[in-house]
């Protein structure tokens, strides 16, 4: 499966990228549409989740992470993990639990 995908990507078909691009545009439309509805505190969460999905698509397909070896994936995980932990620790000061 992965071998096949690798093949298709390195075989340079344009179609995969165009499909992903259409998906990204769709998500943009959704996020703008959803922003009009008031979900209270969940609004920002929804917006961030959609942004994360878009990021995931860009990372894996446009940035070819899907066909890179594991070193790259571990690297990304380390970086994102660091950022998330920093957010959580910083907010331990601001949210009064």
């Amino acid at each position: 499966m992965e071998e096949k995908e690798k093949h298709s990507l390195t075989n340079h078909s344009y179609s995969v990228y165009i499909i992903v691009w259409l998906a990204l545009l769709t998500f943009t439309a959704i996020t703008v549409a959803v922003a009009g509805i008031n979900f209270g505190n969940a609004t920002i969460a929804i917006a961030l989740i959609i942004a994360s999905i878009k990021t995931y698509l860009v990372l894996t397909i446009f940035m070819h992470l899907k066909i890179e070896n594991n070193t790259f994936k571990v690297f990304i995980i380390i970086a994102i993990f660091f950022l998330i932990v920093t957010f959580v620790l910083l907010f331990s000061d601001y949210s009064n639990i």
């Binding site: 996020t31 920002i44 961030l48 959609i50 942004a51 860009v58 446009f62």
Partner: peptide, 25 residues
């Protein structure tokens, strides 16, 4: 070209987050 592309995509990703945080709240 590939790494230049990586850089360009990162700029895109950052905008993906900036957009909802400034325009959609």
């Amino acid at each position: 070209l590939e790494v230049a592309g990586l850089y360009w995509h990162l700029i895109d990703i950052i905008w993906i987050f900036l957009f909802p945080l400034f325009y959609l709240i």
